[in-house]
């Protein structure tokens, strides 16, 4: 589904190597957690996957489409929820959703049904008629999530999705991630909280200082004797109750 091959990214001409020769394969139907401390390179990697940042070296394919050479098709196969919830503030929620439906070719006949379903599900029915400016942080995130779910993307990518959601919304989102995968789709999300990844993911990739340290199921990773991995685990567990 998602194939990342030896990608690297350096910001500002060779001084900071944010992503250093990363390779990953994410299979159809799995929830993949991208785990790492702040500044590890998660957002940078995700921006390259979603075609926002140019890739310095290596290549990425989504459902077989190369994100740089066949960008439009690759992008049609995914939906992206960024970590900053900057949306067009002066639009109403419903206007934003209609825009997303247009752009991702959601057929007219299923559009209303899907919009209603997700608005209900995330208790956003009332808010949808109001300007996004009046939304809370969590509401903004919810409207973005709904916008992505509208076109049922084969690959659903989220950057730190659970930060800032209330327990109910957070639970709903996790449910929806499972639902999405059970239909044969794939979810790829980043987090800096070990517990989140542990509970939710089929497989986990751990990134630190731009490099992948380990990939596997939680059990695999726990069994590993690598001491640097243990340190990472520790740093991701500590204080996680504050960040989560």
């Amino acid at each position: 589904m998602l194939n990342i091959k030896n990608i690297s990214k350096t910001y500002s001409k060779g001084k900071v190597k944010a992503v250093d020769n990363i390779s990953l394969q994410v299979k159809r139907g799995e929830i993949f957690g991208f785990l790492g401390p702040n500044g590890a390179g998660k957002t940078t990697t995700i921006k390259m996957i979603t075609g926002i940042l140019p890739i310095d070296e290596g290549e990425i394919t989504i459902n077989g489409f190369n994100i740089e050479k066949d960008a439009i098709n690759a992008k049609k196969n995914m939906g992206f929820v960024p970590d900053s919830h900057d949306v067009y503030e002066r639009l109403k929620g419903i206007e934003y959703l209609n825009f997303m439906a247009d752009v991702y070719d959601v057929p007219a006949d299923v559009r209303k049904e899907r919009i209603d379903k997700y608005l209900d599900m995330f208790s956003m029915k009332e808010a949808a008629g109001q300007p996004i400016k009046s939304y809370s942080h969590g509401m903004k995130q919810k409207i973005i999530v709904i916008g992505v779910l509208l076109h049922q993307p084969p690959l659903w990518i989220m950057d730190e999705p659970l930060t800032g959601l209330d327990p109910k919304s957070s639970h709903l989102l996790k449910e929806e991630m499972h639902q999405h995968c059970s239909k044969g789709n794939t979810v790829f999300f980043s987090t800096h909280v070990l517990e989140v990844a542990e509970k939710l993911c089929d497989r986990i990739g751990i990134i630190n200082k731009g490099k992948i340290i380990a990939v596997g199921t939680m059990d695999d990773l726990r069994k590993s004797q690598d001491s640097s991995l243990e340190n990472i685990f520790l740093s991701l567990t500590e204080g996680s109750d504050i960040d989560a």
């Binding site: 503030e89 002066r90 109403k92 825009f99």
Partner: peptide, 21 residues
């Protein structure tokens, strides 16, 4: 899609929706 994008930009920039609100 292009017109959808144009419509979005116009609305977002001139804020008709929020003005009406």
């Amino acid at each position: 899609k292009f017109f959808s994008l144009l419509k979005l930009q116009i609305k977002a920039q001139y804020g008709f929706s929020s003005l009406a609100y």
